[in-house]
């Protein structure tokens, strides 16, 4: 089978989970605070219940799915 290229998006929305963001250098949160990014991939909270916004801390898993 010949080699092919693969999708490798910079923004990935995880079902019932965070938004993964690749190659970002800084992220501004809802309060206008700018956070430096030191990782190749970060997970941004989408449920708004994280204890460390704007980052995901897994809290969405203990929230009942509507």
């Amino acid at each position: 089978m010949p080699e092919r290229d693969y999708d490798h998006p910079d923004v990935v929305i995880c079902p019932d989970g965070p938004l993964l963001l690749r190659n970002a250098t800084s992220v501004q949160d809802a309060d206008g605070v700018v956070h430096d990014v030191r990782r190749p991939v970060v997970a941004l909270c989408r449920c708004e219940k994280s204890s460390r916004l704007p980052w995901c801390d897994g809290t969405h898993k203990v929230i009942p799915r509507g």
Binding site: P18, L20, R39, R52, G58
Partner: peptide, 14 residues
């Protein structure tokens, strides 16, 4: 690990 593994779990599973 709170922050890192919230990312890694998606990379690992998917």
């Amino acid at each position: 690990h709170v922050e890192a593994d919230a990312i890694h779990e998606h990379l690992a599973a998917r």
